[in-house]
Write a protein that binds this DNA or RNA. Sequence first.
DNA 1: CGCGGGGTTGAACATTCTCAAGAACTGTGG
DNA 2: CCACAGTTCTTGAGAATGTTCAACCCCGCG
Lengths: 238, 238
Amino acid sequence: MANSRKKEPEITPQPPLSERMCVSLVPIFNHLSPEQMDEVMEVVQHKTFKKGETIYRADETSDTLYIVNRGQVKIYRLSDTGKEQLVRILTPGDFTGELALFRQSVHEAYAETLVDSAICHIHRDDLQRLLLRYPTISLKILEEFSRRLDTAEKQTTSFATEKVDTRIALYLVECVEEEGANEATIELPLSRKDLASYLGTTPETISRKLTEFEEKGLILQQGQRKMKLLDIDELLFI
Amino acid sequence: MANSRKKEPEITPQPPLSERMCVSLVPIFNHLSPEQMDEVMEVVQHKTFKKGETIYRADETSDTLYIVNRGQVKIYRLSDTGKEQLVRILTPGDFTGELALFRQSVHEAYAETLVDSAICHIHRDDLQRLLLRYPTISLKILEEFSRRLDTAEKQTTSFATEKVDTRIALYLVECVEEEGANEATIELPLSRKDLASYLGTTPETISRKLTEFEEKGLILQQGQRKMKLLDIDELLFI
DNA sequence: CGCGGGGTTGAACATTCTCAAGAACTGTGG
DNA sequence: CCACAGTTCTTGAGAATGTTCAACCCCGCG
């Protein structure tokens, strides 16, 4: 028969976006008119990365804003004594590189692809020109920055004042999509090792605490990364 | 006699700045021309606070940027379980309120004066108008934000990966003004209690660790808040 | 069916906190 | 200038919390 393609091989885990689509989805650009977007697209370049490649590393000078088009990127830092901490995972539509972009300075973190990825990027000079021409973009970036700053400070406070119990519980609850309900099924996006790095603990402790939660009837583990939260209110009280 | 004022009472601990001086010193405005500064000053208001007064508190809606003119302000958060963490101390020239200023949102932290203080403030609408008229101000704020974001993430990493030893040592070194030397005398700006809150530990632990440092010959305590760092390189190695 | 990598469990150990008591400092009023 | 009261800081001992390291388990895959 004519269309006998059987089971097209899944190459990309996420549906591919056109670059324009990708860039226009980024919160900092999504309010622009089509004409303005044209202008933005003129200075956007793109590149693909294999799994595990480094996009930038600490101490490199920064002159580029990166936008994840397809794939996943992890941002991590090394502490003064050399231990790694996962700062954030970027998924399509997220951007990075901004920290060192607005002042002459070097990166303080590492960006590395977790899977094959496509990344759009904009050069510093081009971006600054856009910002001066369309001040509303700056306002959007300021908005995004202030959100991140809140998150970062909240995270710091959480590390400073909560014990591991609580941090893990809070993280589980953050993973919930639906609002309102007291139950939910979630799928952890990270391995125990990465999760431990993100939460400032060890894989062993995470295992133990999850078991503990299960014994208390707060969660129901279903395989390594899936679980059902049975009592969200109670989880927040730990 | 005519001018017989003896010993004018010292009301202000820091030398008072004119408001204009104050605002013009803030990094985000200090590049403006005198004419532009005039425009800024038109929308700046001012207010004085007694020691211990609250400037804003979490969950209040935010519509004002505050600039410290004279005095000291502490910014702190309450964790989900109600414990207080000191986020930052503002001194003259520092600003706050920005977090919730660029998106419609409420404060997530508390701002409280540590001593009698004078605060300049700018209303949200006025600020936005200024930003749209002078896009370079946005760039300055972005610069400042990116610096703070770095600091916040660094702080988070430090909490996540270092033990109290190291965090205290790093803090001591941060207090040093002069660059280069391996020795320095510093004066802690915070009480043990506040320092503990800032570093995510307890006053008792700080006492003990400082004693420990002293026994190892790394520091020499001179009164409660003053000390001499004897071997900065070694402190960073802990 | 054996291999390998994540994940789990256990036991000893290290770190830090808590609570309580005592010491040192600060500021005030005599 | 000294004594006192109120803080703030230090020290001690025991308890709680997490980490480390090693062994084991589970499961997908060749």
